[in-house]
């Protein structure tokens, strides 16, 4: 751009600068909102996590005591590892379902991809708690599966193990995560041209090789975003383990809710939440790093 003839250039630069100012003005409400209701609350949360809980008050001095408590407690360690393991499993399963779905609607039935994607959007925005309730209805002791099996005479006693355990938690978690995983993978898959796949096939690659060498490297960013969304949503959940996990499988979220609801120990809850987000970010970054190395 440099060195053009004087006047039109300055006019252009001025117009560009004006456009930029308008853009910034238009972005201001969103940025202000973000600062007020996102950055502010999270900063306060981190601050609270360093306070001391005494006589149902949060008081200074600031210390790392809450974090020390979180890291050294055996109970909390069990909760953290269960949260991470079941969330990882759920996220991986959700992607394992969302990926072929996205592939199929993009390349096998491209004519119907719109309506099928539409269904996924509807599933995504429709009924988080209703879904949990539905799984309870289906898997419960007096639920649909047990009730129907007993009516049919297949079983005498209801099977108790299907609800209130890790199984029910993972099933309903995956059920809730699949649409969330489809979104970014679908967006990434739109960048893969069918021609590239055909070319690879014509050159003798197997279906597996095409996926591994052609499609996966191209959609990897989308898959990683999907993993982050799913893993984070699962690890921060407490309603699914509370309503479907029984007493055996609470997540760290349930403990956080307990500390706030029952003991009003906000500082400890804040420290647990901050530890959780740190752990989640580390794991997501680690997975992204490994995936980038392996898939290229």
């Amino acid at each position: 751009m440099a060195g053009g003839s004087g006047r039109p250039l300055t006019a252009g630069v001025r117009a560009e600068r004006g456009r930029l100012l308008v853009s910034i003005a238009q972005l201001t409400p969103a940025l202000a909102y973000f600062a007020l209701f996102y950055v502010g609350p999270l900063l306060v949360l981190v601050y609270i996590s360093f306070l001391t809980f005494r006589n149902f008050q949060f008081v200074e001095p600031l210390s790392f005591n809450n974090y020390a408590n979180v890291v050294t407690s055996e109970t909390f360690r069990v909760l953290f590892s269960r949260t991470v393991l079941l969330s990882l499993l759920s996220a991986v399963l959700a992607i394992a379902i969302a990926y072929p779905f996205t592939y199929i609607i993009t390349f096998v039935f491209p004519g119907r991809s719109r309506s099928l994607y539409f269904l996924i959007l509807v599933a995504l925005f429709g009924g988080y708690l209703v879904r949990i309730y539905a799984w309870r209805t289906i898997l419960g002791v007096e639920g649909v599966i047990n009730g129907t099996l007993m009516t049919l005479g297949v079983i005498e006693e209801p099977i108790r193990e299907i609800l209130n355990g890790p199984f029910a938690v993972v099933v309903s978690m995956v059920n809730f995560l699949v649409p969330l995983a489809v979104l970014p993978i679908y967006a990434a898959m739109q960048n893969v041209s069918p021609g590239v796949i055909e070319a690879a096939r014509d050159l003798g690659s197997s279906r597996l090789q095409v996926t591994r060498r052609v499609i996966l490297p191209l959609v990897l960013p989308g898959v990683l975003v999907a993993f982050a969304f799913c893993f984070i949503a699962a690890a921060g959940d407490f309603a699914i383990p509370a309503l479907l996990g029984g007493v055996e499988s609470p997540f760290i979220g349930n403990q956080i809710q307990f500390q706030i609801g029952q003991t009003s120990n906000w500082p400890l809850a804040a420290a647990m939440a901050t530890t959780l987000i740190a752990l989640v970010v580390l794991i997501v970054a680690g997975v992204a790093l490994v995936a980038r190395r392996v898939i290229r």
Partner: peptide
Amino acid sequence: VQTVVLIPIATPALLLGIGIAIYFNR
């Protein structure tokens, strides 16, 4: 900017929920 605006989806709702509660309280 398009990446930054996604951050609230990538934050556990739990964190936002208790963050906002304690924020207004403070």
